[in-house]
Design a protein around this nucleic acid. Structure first.
Lengths: 220, 220
DNA sequence: AACTGTGAACTTCTTCACAGCC
DNA sequence: GGCTGTGAAGAAGTTCACAGTT
């Protein structure tokens, strides 16, 4: 019994594959046909050997002595990531952040399609964003069911995020991207991926101050 | 020659410390005075042993048999992360995302203070967001110098992000949080931390589909 | 000659298990 | 008894170095 290729790709690799996909799309648009691991790695901000190891999870797809064919590699990565399929997503919380997400063209080209935008405030309901009309929260379950959406994005205030999470999970959503600054708990079978913007800023600032402190220490 | 405590805290730990800080603030507001590692870990979505190891980087600050004192721990983490200082930040790109960031109250309580909001479009200049008036890009360097800002946030379209990065670096910014979907290069001494929202969504979706595929395989 | 693909070494991160203290 | 702090084990991720291919 031979397993031709381990089906599981490391999470760290998946994140970088998404970046390579972005870079490759840019190269293809610029008319490039081939690219070496060194060049691609530099454009993606990673180590060349690491990039080759990442790509090795997709099976051999470069040519030794030459490099990678841009469009072939792009399509291979897109297929593995599922970016060629169009996955239905719903977005809850149409504040500034939610509006930015709903408007962001980058999602469409990556295989995501918003099928519902929801907010609890009547003042937000009815406005049109990115070709979609904002609906009231009461229509959440029906819309998820209708489009068989499996991905939800939470961009609400922290106070209501857990209850939104519960409703999304109950409605059939399997994966949730959470921008609210609160830790959510979801039933087994439902993934939650937190993105906390102030955590990112705090890590950035800390690493900067740590670097500065080290530099001062060496000088002393 | 004894080094009493290794000054460098692992990056992964720093990110979680920021989360603990958020949770502890919530507990303190709720009137809690002590908390155990198990409880705090559960509220932060991490493993209890890992939490204790994270906190051990700050030196011993719990009481065996009892737990941690909420406000003492919160202040200790805040001091380590530098959240008690007020650090001057500038934000470039006042679209929906930029507006969301400028408006986000969470930054203020974490020791960050926006001292300048910038956009290239005259239509954006002059509007007031979170108590600050949006300035034209031409005033970037002067404002950075005046407030001695060291942190910059880029929320511009991808096309102009590199040139904004160059200007921030030249103006004296040492740490940059980049929301533009492009890999930036900066001079040595300047850190760039990328946050790509569509990469997050892609990782989430991939892990979900991988999980689903594995489940189907087991069933078969 | 140039560049890929990958085993092996290395580093970092996570989890476990339990000694130590209240 | 209950909970912290930490060495040790284990897992994951990164980097190196070079064999292999065109």
């Amino acid at each position: 019994m031979i397993q031709p290729r381990p089906r599981t790709i490391p999470e760290a690799t998946v994140g970088r594959l998404a970046v390579y996909l972005r870079v490759l799309t840019g190269l293809a648009d610029g008319g490039r046909t081939t690219v070496s691991s060194g060049e691609l790695a530099s454009a993606a901000g990673v180590n060349p050997a690491g990039l080759r190891k990442d790509l090795s999870h997709l099976g051999s797809c470069g040519v030794r002595g030459v490099g990678y064919e841009v469009t072939a590699l792009r399509e291979r990565i897109a297929r593995v990531l599922g970016a060629e399929r169009s996955r239905a997503c719903v977005l809850v919380g149409i504040g500034n952040l939610g509006t930015a997400l709903a408007d962001y063209a980058g999602f469409g080209s990556r295989g995501f399609r918003f099928v519902g935008l929801f907010d609890a405030a009547p003042s937000q309901v009815g406005q049109e964003i990115g070709g979609l009309t904002v609906q009231h929260m009461s229509e959440l379950e029906a819309t998820v069911a209708e489009h068989e959406a499996t991905i939800g994005v939470i961009a609400t205030p922290a106070e209501v995020a857990q209850s939104v999470c519960d409703r999304l999970a109950a409605a059939g959503i399997r994966s949730i991207l959470n921008f609210a600054p609160v830790t959510l708990t979801a039933p087994v079978g439902v993934d939650v991926r937190p993105v906390d913007l102030s955590v990112e800023l705090q890590v950035l600032a800390f690493l900067g101050q740590q670097r500065t402190a080290r530099a001062a220490e060496v000088t002393a």
